[in-house]
């Protein structure tokens, strides 16, 4: 192919590419996934209402405006146990800046009588929620424990961390990101 023919081909390809970019532009001007609840970064966090062992009720959507970490855990899960002291430390450090930590115990696959002694053993002060039906686990497509969902002030999942224990540095960077 001669040079002139190649240049014409390049120009035709680039014009087609530019047209395709213009044609496929998002008319709404916002990321298309933000309205749909799904357990994935850039989606709205699936809503839930759960109770603590003392009967207090928490609804995720009512915490809009605050940065939320939803941590799914169980008492029998070693990495869940290992990251609890760090979670407590981070909660104490950031709660006054609008950070909320919801530790959702997978009660439907855990010993319900072990939860309260566990929280006392680790001196946990953040809300412990009891997931007794498996609905929240299904909504969050739980694959592994622990699973952590970092949710920004608009209720959008910013980051998902599957597995643990999370290091303090990782927690710090993620919490500061959702507090922005």
């Amino acid at each position: 192919m001669y040079r002139n023919q190649r240049v014409i081909l390049y120009i035709l390809i680039l014009i087609s590419g530019a047209s395709w970019i213009a044609l496929s532009a998002e008319k709404t001007g916002s990321a298309p996934s933000r309205d749909i609840p799904a357990p994935q970064a850039s989606f709205a966090a699936p809503d839930f209402t759960l109770k603590t062992p003392t009967g207090e009720t928490y609804t995720l959507s009512e915490l809009r405006g605050q940065a939320v970490l939803v941590n799914l855990w169980a008492t029998w899960c070693p990495p869940c146990r290992a990251e609890m002291p760090t979670l407590e430390k981070m909660y104490e450090e950031y709660k006054d800046q609008g950070f909320v930590l919801l530790a959702v115990n997978m009660t439907y696959q855990d010993d319900p009588f072990a939860v309260v002694p566990f929280t006392q053993e680790y001196s946990l002060t953040f809300p412990i929620l009891l997931e007794e039906t498996g609905d929240v686990a299904a909504a969050y497509q739980l694959r592994s424990l622990p699973s952590s969902f970092f949710i920004d002030r608009d209720g959008i999942i910013n980051e998902v961390v599957i597995g643990g224990p999370m290091s303090e540095a990782l927690l710090r960077t993620r919490i500061e990101e959702i507090l922005k």
Binding site: A22, G29, S30, S33
Partner: peptide, 21 residues
């Protein structure tokens, strides 16, 4: 153009397409 997780710039253009271009 078919992705649902693009970063949008300049009134809805997909950043990834502009970089590829």
């Amino acid at each position: 153009a078919f992705r649902g997780d693009n970063t949008l710039i300049l009134n809805g253009l997909r950043q990834e397409q502009v970089i590829a271009f």
